[in-house]
């Protein structure tokens, strides 16, 4: 038996025993690579996700709504930071990750390639998009890689308010004038299916799932998480008096779950491949922010270098 196989078996045994893997532990190269990809893409999703919501901060309808949204978007920047730091423990640098994002080599969640056309979209995003993210992230608090799991614990603590502020917006609109209710319904119509797509392709089309479950990167499959989200969300939509845009949606007594209609997978893959309504705009905004911010980063480093040389001069003369 080669020592490599032995290591892999030992590694799997540790995972099976529910142990956490820490950055300096031996790990299969594929485990490392998979995590770098997954954590960095999760980080990218957090910061690209600031863009559609940031779009409405200056136009929030009241101060209450404005401070809530501002605080939420601020949290998302923090989530990006926690996750980039977790990925850095695996030996990739921050700049490398940004480079992959900016060159279109790294993905981020497709949901953020949809536009936010009305204020109600901010409600729908908090309720549905953060709601879907919470389901995924709660699962990830138990993931096998320590730094990722710990970042998730922090993030989940903060997410609850995101979803509640979103639902409160939806509630206000749904109980408002006819026009406001129509806005809320329209936002639900546009965000429902993309939210279901957030859980990724069906299990049958998701070749990495088996390995991810074995390594306890994922503790539930895409289809299981999607079903969980639907079961939780349908009663919340009913409470709002809104209609989920799926004629096939109905409670299945036997299964104890909601049955639902077919997702438009063609649309899903189109958006993943870069042809969604806002892919270019989102990436353009990120690249622009990076390039326009270059002089600030450089100036800060120059200032730090200058202080260092001055301090060493002082300590030499002292």
């Amino acid at each position: 038996m080669s020592p490599e196989i032995n290591l892999e078996e030992q590694f799997q045994a540790r995972i099976d025993a529910g142990e956490k893997i820490e950055p300096k532990d031996w790990m299969p190269e594929k485990y490392r690579k998979t995590h770098i990809r997954q954590i960095s893409q999760h980080a990218h999703s957090e910061i690209v996700g600031m863009l559609p919501e940031g779009n409405w901060i200056t136009r929030a309808p009241s101060l209450r709504r404005k401070v809530g949204l501002l605080a939420k978007v601020q949290d998302e920047a923090g989530h990006g930071l926690y996750l980039y730091s977790a990925a850095e423990t695996l030996g990739i640098s921050r700049d490398q990750m940004f480079d992959q994002l900016h060159k279109g080599k790294a993905k981020y969640s497709s949901i953020f390639n949809y536009p936010t056309l009305s204020w109600a979209d901010i409600g729908a995003i908090g309720w549905l998009v953060d709601g879907a993210a919470i389901i995924n992230q709660v699962m990830l608090t138990r993931t096998s890689f320590g730094p990722y799991a710990r970042a998730m614990v922090r993030i989940c603590k903060e997410e609850s308010f995101h979803q509640r502020q979103g639902y409160e917006i939806m509630l206000g609109l749904a109980k408002g004038t006819l026009e406001q209710k129509e806005m809320a319904q329209d936002a639900l119509n546009r965000f429902w299916w993309p939210s279901l797509m957030m859980f990724g392709p069906r299990d049958a089309e998701s070749p990495n799932t088996e390995q991810s479950v074995k390594w306890k990167i994922k503790r539930k499959t895409n289809d299981e998480l999607r079903q969980q989200f639907i079961d939780i969300t349908v009663p919340q939509a009913e409470y709002l008096g809104l209609t989920i845009p799926d004629p096939d949606l109905k409670w299945n007594e036997e299964r104890g779950h909601y049955d639902f209609g077919e997702i438009d997978w063609n649309e899903f893959w189109q958006v993943v491949k870069g042809n969604g309504p806002c892919n270019k705009e989102r990436l353009g905004a990120r690249v622009n922010a990076w390039e326009e911010g270059a002089w600030v980063r450089d100036a800060a480093m120059a200032y730090s270098a200058k202080n260092k040389t001055q301090n060493s001069k002082v300590s030499k003369t002292a």
């Binding site: 401070v67 639902y167 509630l171 939780i232 919340q236």
Partner: peptide
């Protein structure tokens, strides 16, 4: 004074579940 950063700031009906 940034109480709006906490979930309890948002007033949702208690009968609502999982939120």
């Amino acid at each position: 004074d940034k109480i709006y950063r906490h979930p309890t700031f948002y007033e949702l009906p208690i009968e609502l579940k999982h939120i």
